[in-house]
Write a protein that binds this DNA or RNA. Structure first.
Lengths: 103, 103
DNA sequence: TTGACAATATCGAATTACGATATTAGATTT
DNA sequence: AAATCTAATATCGTAATTCGATATTGTCAA
């Protein structure tokens, strides 16, 4: 992400994408971060983990620890209210993009 | 914008929308802010004006003062490099939204 | 020359993002 | 069973943003 403008755009989306992925399957930090990188995006763990915490505090995600090969993972899934805000966010995002292309 | 998540999403877009509008016509802070409000969005002047300054510093906008009925306005227009980054940002934004809807 | 006003600019406090470092806890090795 | 290893999570101090409030600018009208 060469330019700060593009990075900020991405950062605005990051929470929405977290919820979006958590809606499809259980996610955890490490894997989510790697998936982003595969798509050419990047976010610091110092940003990502606090984001997960905050989304859980707000009631959009819920989490459970699980041991996988002796390592602890914190899996997150979407809550009902998380799904509600996700749908709102998708609409808003679409609206904002559409305006960039219409006219 | 009831929810912080939605607001952050919007804030990620704000610079792109500034450039987008400046591409269509000369814009200035007060008017741009009012136009946002008409669309249900809102941004503090303490955020907006420094953003204009930064976008100009980075060479994406250029500005000129103009007197309108005895009041000074700073009009901004898009530069060539501003247009370049705008096109990149539009593509990225579309990509990010598309992923929320596909699958 | 002082008031009034639209618009822009800037301030201090609170929040956020970053990279780096520390912590966790089960598995493996000795 | 103590020590070591390791994937993953958590946290730290610093720098950068965002906010609402306040200050400043520059021209016209009285």
């Amino acid at each position: 992400m060469e330019d700060k403008l593009l990075k900020d755009l991405f950062l605005g989306f990051i929470k929405v994408h977290i919820l979006h992925h958590a809606a499809k399957e259980r996610i955890y930090g490490q894997e989510f971060s790697e998936e982003l990188q595969r798509h050419g995006y990047q976010i610091s763990y110092g940003t990502l983990y606090p984001l997960f915490h905050k989304l859980e505090e707000q009631g959009y995600l819920k989490s459970e620890n699980e041991n996988v090969k002796g390592k602890v993972r914190r899996y997150y899934t979407l809550t009902k209210s998380g799904n509600k805000i996700l749908e709102k966010a998708k609409l808003q995002a679409k609206e904002l993009v559409d305006e960039l292309y219409e006219e």
